[in-house]
Amino acid sequence: MIRLTNDPIDYAALTESVRSNQSGAVVLFLGTVREMTGGRQTVALDYECYPAMAEAKMQELLDEMRTRWPVDKAAIEHRLGHLELGDISVAAAVSCPHRVQAFEAGRWLIDELKVRVPIWKKENWSDGTTEWVHPGVPPA
């Protein structure tokens, strides 16, 4: 299951959706809005995406993950729009027969999401400035 949403993420429901009697392990990753980054204070983040490509890339990740690990069920939900401190920006849940597979697959899934899926966050710093986060690109 893949979802882009402007609403709060129901991570309990997401986690339930990947549970099954075939799996002895369920791993859930939550990304949440952090206050401090390198000594600077965040008050909020704004997320946007390229919807058609973001959905295609997330599906591609789920398909590729299944070629690497014996994944039973998997789900990704990413939030868009304005998020406050502590809000959940992304949830990724994976179930597998055994825990090592579930941890490895879940780790790979969120790592690849962060470099492949066209979603961007904009920092709203406590000094009133804003800044798009583009890894590897010098600040404006």
């Binding site: 990304g31 995406c49 058609a52 490509m53 920006s89 962060k114 066209p118 583009h134 590897g136 690109v137």
Partner: peptide, 12 residues
């Protein structure tokens, strides 16, 4: 073709 151009992504 649908063409798009964007800087490095930062989801998550």
């Amino acid at each position: 073709d649908e063409v798009a151009c964007f800087p490095p992504v930062s989801g998550g």
